[in-house]
Each structure stands twice: as structure tokens, then as C-alpha cells.
Design a protein around this nucleic acid. Structure first.
Lengths: 365, 365
DNA sequence: AGGTGCTGGGAAAGCGCATTCCCACTGCAT
DNA sequence: ATGCAGTGGGAATGCGCTTTCCCAGCACCT
């Protein structure tokens, strides 16, 4: 990694390093045109590339933004990542990626690594957990983040506030009305169907999942429906698949108990707490010979890009994922830059979603 | 970004900065247990986080690996990114992300940015272009990469060598037998179908696309079939969709010309140069009322994870994308680390794919 | 006892750059 | 002619850390 240095350029141009620095890396003071030209020429012939590390060290700002996701190959996260990347690019920053599978310990580590690199901002995209066994990990994560903020860092959080984090400025929240939207979805489904509802959720304590479940339940209640049973599984396709198998079993049993009912309306309307789980559940049902919406209705959440080509069209709640990534990143760069954005006083922002009904919840006899 | 420094820790522990450095950041020399404990204690109470920038500056190795993709939200790239991320993590490095939409100018810029950050390695995942209008851009990209390599950097390239790059060591290629696999796919399809073949390719000059097209054609030739017509579109879902519309028109015309033929076998077997194009093409056909495989057969390439839940099951060539990302990254970290891997003398590697036939190319009357 | 080889620790020199301070020089008013 | 602000450039310092070099102390040998 031995590239030519500013000093070498300066020497070749016959000027001092200070002058070379001034002309090459935008300073307030502009040296005279003759000198500038010589320096630029020298830099060109030497193939000079400024050492960003040294620059960062000297002016203590790294031009880095850290992004924490559970899994970069998950469409939900990669959509957000795209948004983050876009803004970073606009701001002439680079994004530093960390994937953590959602474990607080890994996230703490990632934050520490970002802090070590003196990242200007950190965006946390994954859902936080409030499980008791994660309490310790969460506390440590929160402490690490607090420290990072106290040292002047900015963190953009997607969805919900960090559990246990102090009320520092430095935290910027992009609010996602998960609960409200889930309630709305439940309301719409309840108004057009008289089925039993079942919810496939992530592990208990995963906040995004819990919010959506709570919202869905309250939506059902508002429609005068009994609370839905909640199946727990991991918050990804595999979890959905397993839950799908369980539900397939259940449908089979119901059919057996009522043999005359084969052609009847599907008995179940399933709400999965995110789209990839819904997709997994659909696959699980399918593996047992059951189809959506023929044998069960299905709805998800997020409207990931994958859904565009998923059959049957999956009812879901559309979230502007890319925009969420953009906003989370923008919120960290200081209020001066985001003109006319929907930012609240904290420099946080809120997005809105949209219930989107498709064929997976339509039953035509 | 003012965190506590090594010097402060050292002072608190009553030792010299040198000693503090030795105990906190793994050095060859291990200070005595008493001193170590004091230093560690001091670091703990101060919440010391080493400044990675300064470390990088001092030992000129940044612990960064740069990753260049066209679009992080594309399943192909995000799968590779996952592999890169995994290895980076194992090696205690961090991933620096850049998305470029495939334009050589952007990629040059990304390489320069990585070089500025003194990234230990750069992984280029996107396909290179050999179009005449990109020639200038490619040359500049190659120059930038050459310079990076000459300065001691390592670059891992997925798929095909960089056009115009020097024969420096520092380049490590993960070979993907696109051509051969496409030929194999063509052979299998030709042996079971007597349809006309059509190819949906990316823009002319996109090397991955061209390789696959060439391979498919030669596979057809080997099976005694005439060369397939090639439709050009952008190398993503949108491109596939457009091509799908064009082909729908064509099918419609053919049907009109031969009215009695409605229930006949589909006239076309379509090979799209990657899965997302195939998905797009399927959607395009569908929008015009045509189904796969009823009205046209369809095959893709890559076997992206999305296909798992795509109906009809898409015939494709399975590529170990995550592994490709892993290998590309591993190949850059020096031969000592990868024990027992399939590496060639250059520290490059080769992967193999597998033709995977699914329902999209089955026609049952 | 005097020398030898080791050990654990500190002092100091950078790594490449930004930036503050300082100096020489200019053009102008006094 | 003398003083002044203003300008274009250089010297020097420091960002936080690693690492080489050096030194004091010790156990060991002849």
C-alpha cells in the first residue's frame, strides 16, 4: 500500500507540503494559479491519491457511514441498503457494512468497529429485541451507542428506538407506524372475510414483529373479532416455512373432522409479520398440497421488491424501504442538508405505509 | 468524535503509550501480567476505543475490503455480498460498499476511493463491459486498478478478467464457466425440445452476457440446431420485461398466422442471460396473457435465491453465488490462509455450476 | 567479581496529512 | 521615506498510534 505521498508531490512541484495540501485537497486558502498548476501537474504524473486515513486522522472526520443489517441478502435489508448507499454517495461518503443476524452482541461489536473507524454516522436497520435473554446484550449495545453519540457520532435508527439508550441528541429515529398499519390491514381483512385469523410472528420480543402483531390484534378487536392465535418462528423465510407446515397440519385435521367441507371457503386467514415469512409460509403450505388463496388466505408486511413476481400476488403493507434507508441516513447528516423533508424536531423522520390487498387474500368460489 | 486516546489510558495506568499499545492492540511483545492488568483496567474505565484510522496509518493496513457491485438490492449481487461479508468477518476486516450501476467511470471512482482508504483488497462483482463507448472508461478503470495493484493492493474479480488490465499479480480471478454452462443448458434443452430458441441478452459488450449467449449458441450448434435470435435489453428485470413484451407480440402474430394452432406446443423456448431478466420476461409475457411454460418455455441463469419461491420453477444454471463472493475475497488475502481450497497458482479460483431444469421448460400436453 | 545474554519497560521517530502560526513581500496611504 | 494591511508561501506542530531503538535490571556463566 505504498502510494506516493503529498510530500513527494510537493517536492516534485517545488513547493512545500502545506501548499500542495492547499491546492489538492480543498482548503480555504487558494494558492496562486501558477503554483496550483504545477502542483496539480506533479500530482498527476505521480498518480497521487490522498490517504483518506491520514486525512481523517488530521481533521477527525472519516467520511464513513456504518450500516448494520441482519442479512444483506434479505430483500428487506438490501432495499434499505440501497437507499443508504444512495444518500452516502450524494454526501460523498462511503458505507461500511456489517451484518449481525440480529444478535445484540454482534451489533455491539459492529458499533464498536464503526466507532473505531470514527464513522461519521451509523444506521441501524435491523429490529431490536426486547427479550429477557437479550437484556444484557441490549444494555451493552445501548451503552456502546451512547458512548458513540457522546463522542459526537450520529445514529439513525429504523423503526423503533434503541432499548435502553439514553435520550441523547445524536439519535435520529425514522418512525415506521408498524402497529397502526397492521391494525389497518387487519381491519380491511376482517371486513371482507369471516375466517379465523392466525398470526405468524417472529420470536417474542422482536419489537418490529411484536408491534405488528399487537397492531393486527387491535385491528381485529376493533372489528369485533376475537384475538388471533400467534405462532412464533424465526423472522425469516425458514421460520415462515415451518409455521406453514404447522398450519398445513391444522388445515388437514380440520378437513378430516369435517369431511363434507372440501370445497368450502378456506378456513384460515394468515398474517405473517413480514413478507419473507409469508413467502416461506406459502411454500410450507404448498409443500403439503395446500394453495393460497384456495386453502388459506395469506398476508404479509413490507412489500419487498420480490413480491412483484411472486404468485399469488401477496397482500401486504407497502413500506417505502428505500426511502426509509435514505431518511435514516439523511437524518444523521445534520438538519442543514435536508431541505423540505418530513423531519421532526429531532432531525428524525416518519414514513407512511399503505395497505395493499392482492390476490392472496381474495377468495372467489 | 473525540474519544479517549491511548495516551490517556497509558497515563491513567501509569505506563508509557508504547506499553499501553502493546497490551491493548496485540503486539509480539507481551508486557508483564501486572502491567497488563493495570492497562486493561484503565482502558475499561475510560471506555477506550482504538482509533482504527491512526492504526491504519501507523501500520499501513486498514482492515478494509472494498466491494463493487452494480446494485446491492439485486439478488445476484446481494448473495455475493453476503459471501464477501462472511469472509471479511472471519478475517476481522470490514466491508466497504460501492454501487456503480456498471458504469466504468463510477467504478473507477470507487476504486480510487478504496485506494484512498488504503483498502487491503477490492472485490469487483459486476460484469465488465467491452463496448466501444466504454473503452475509454475501461482503460481508466484498468489504469486505476493497475496502480492500486502496483501499490500492493489485491483485487478479486468475479467472472472475467478486467479488460485492459496489466498482468500484475495482485489480480485474482474467480472463474465462472459461463460459456460452458450455457452450452450445456442449450444442449439439454435442445435434446428435449424441438422449439425455436430465442435469447434475451444484456446489452452487447457486457461480457458475462456475451459469454452466456455465445455458449448457448454453440450448445445449440452442437445439437445441430440453428443459431437463436438474440434480443438485447438492459441486464435486469426491466430489460427482461421489455423483451417479454416483444416476444408476446411475436407469439400473438404467430398464432394469428396459424389460427388452428392454439392448443399446440409453445413455439418458443426463451433463454434469458440471467434470472432476473427471465423473471422480467415471464412477467412481460404474463402481462399480455401468455404463460410459462404453457405459451413459451423459459430458462435463466444464476439460480438466485428468489427463484426458490418463483412460479413456475425456473430452469436455470445454478451458480454458488455466496461461495463466489467468499472465494473472490479469500483469493485476495494471500495464499497462506486458504487451506485446501480449489485455488490455482495465481491464488485465483474456479467454481462450477449446474444446469437445473425445472417446470418452466417442461411442457406437458 | 566481571562479563554475557535476556527481559520488561520507556523514549522517540515516524505514518501522511491539515492547519496554525509566522515571515517576506507587495501595494498603498501617510 | 515610513508605516500599514493584505497576500502568498513555508516551517512546525499535532492527529493517535506502532515500532524501532535504547537502557536498566536481572539471572547466569566462567
Amino acid at each position: 500500500m505504498a502510494a506516493s505521498t503529498l510530500t513527494e508531490v510537493a517536492r516534485l512541484a517545488g513547493v512545500s507540503p502545506a501548499t500542495a495540501s492547499r491546492v489538492l485537497n480543498g482548503s480555504a486558502r487558494k494558492p496562486g494559479p501558477g503554483v496550483s498548476e504545477r502542483v496539480r501537474q506533479a500530482a498527476e504524473t505521480l498518480g497521487y491519491i490522498p490517504n483518506a486515513q491520514a486525512q481523517a486522522l488530521a481533521k477527525s472526520s472519516s467520511g464513513l457511514v456504518g450500516l448494520i443489517v441482519h442479512d444483506i441478502a434479505d430483500p428487506y435489508f438490501s432495499a434499505i441498503a440501497r437507499g443508504v448507499q444512495e444518500v452516502a454517495r450524494e454526501q460523498h461518503k462511503m458505507v461500511l457494512l456489517a451484518t449481525t443476524a440480529g444478535t445484540p452482541a454482534d451489533e455491539r461489536e459492529a458499533v464498536a468497529a464503526f466507532a473505531a473507524r470514527r464513522a461519521d454516522a451509523i444506521v441501524i436497520a435491523g429490529s431490536r429485541s426486547s427479550r429477557p435473554e437479550d437484556e444484557q446484550g441490549n444494555a451493552e449495545l445501548a451503552a456502546e451507542l451512547d458512548r458513540y453519540c457522546r463522542n459526537g457520532g450520529h445514529v439513525g435508527v429504523v423503526g423503533q428506538a434503541i432499548v435502553g439508550a439514553g435520550a441523547l441528541d445524536g439519535y435520529h429515529l425514522v418512525e415506521v407506524p408498524n402497529e397502526q398499519l397492521a391494525a389497518e390491514l387487519a381491519g380491511k381483512l376482517a371486513s371482507s372475510h369471516s375466517r379465523d385469523f392466525v398470526i405468524i410472528g417472529g420470536p417474542e420480543g422482536l419489537i418490529t414483529s411484536d408491534d405488528r402483531i399487537r397492531g393486527f390484534q387491535s385491528g381485529l378487536a376493533a372489528a369485533g373479532r376475537p384475538a388471533a392465535e400467534v405462532l412464533r418462528a424465526s423472522f425469516n423465510r425458514a421460520g415462515g416455512y415451518e409455521a406453514g407446515l404447522v398450519l398445513a397440519e391444522r388445515i388437514r385435521d380440520a378437513r378430516k373432522a369435517e369431511p363434507g367441507n372440501e370445497g368450502a371457503k378456506p378456513a384460515l386467514c394468515i398474517f405473517a409479520a413480514n413478507d419473507v415469512m409469508a413467502i416461506g409460509a406459502t411454500a410450507g403450505l404448498r409443500s403439503q398440497g395446500f394453495r393460497v388463496p384456495r386453502d388459506a388466505l395469506m398476508a404479509g408486511f413490507d412489500d419487498i421488491e420480490t413480491l412483484r413476481d411472486f404468485r399469488p400476488g401477496l397482500s401486504t403493507v407497502r413500506l417505502p424501504l428505500e426511502e426509509i434507508g435514505r431518511l435514516a441516513t439523511l437524518s444523521t447528516v445534520g438538519p442543514e442538508v435536508h431541505g423540505g423533508l418530513d423531519m421532526d424536531h429531532d432531525g428524525g423522520a416518519a414514513v407512511t405505509g399503505q395497505v395493499t390487498l392482492r390476490r392472496s387474500t381474495e377468495w372467489t368460489p
